[in-house]
Amino acid sequence: MINPAKRRSVLGWLAAALSALLLAGVMPATAADEHGAHSGHKLIAKGDKCVRDEEYMRRNHMKILKHQRDDTMRKGIRTTQDSLKNCIECHVNPKTNSVASSKEDFCMGCHTYAAVKVDCFECHSSKPKAPAVGMNPIITPEQQSEGKDKQSSLSGKMRWQMQAKQASLNMGEGVK
């Protein structure tokens, strides 16, 4: 025996519960965004010089990766600079040989702190490809001759790439 008033209150309660649920879903994500970037969290295997400005990378690395992902997947464009493989080569944790196997690793360090799920490594390997001489996918033949001695230091290679790209890159533009 439910009277109309009671019925209304039940409906009202349902609506409130629903909106609360929706809010609950949104809140932590925004909160994480706010603080994650400025956490001062210590990163392991942080390279010397990234493909973009550090501050820019913190906020936009996912955009760069997504752009490159679609280019590579759909069109077969395999430029190395913005590729996930390139990130991994530089940021790999020497202890775990991975960027995402533990909280200490580069990707998970931040993502665990910010409670943002990374979906990349469900499919992608979080380990760098074992460098076979002349077969390293991220080192083009020109680079090889240019930086034989630099090859041992991946960050050195990145710095070399940065110099090459400096003209065409700036923070705002980022991904072309």
């Binding site: 077969g76 395999r78 493989k85 991994i88 469900e122 499919c123 992608h124 390997s125 380990k127 760098p128 490809k129 996918p137």
Partner: peptide
Amino acid sequence: DQNPDVPRGKGCVESCTLCVHRIDK
């Protein structure tokens, strides 16, 4: 145990890629 050139994982469908990562090289 994915090959870095060949991402693959649970819950998706996959098939021969004609070794697209090799063809592109």
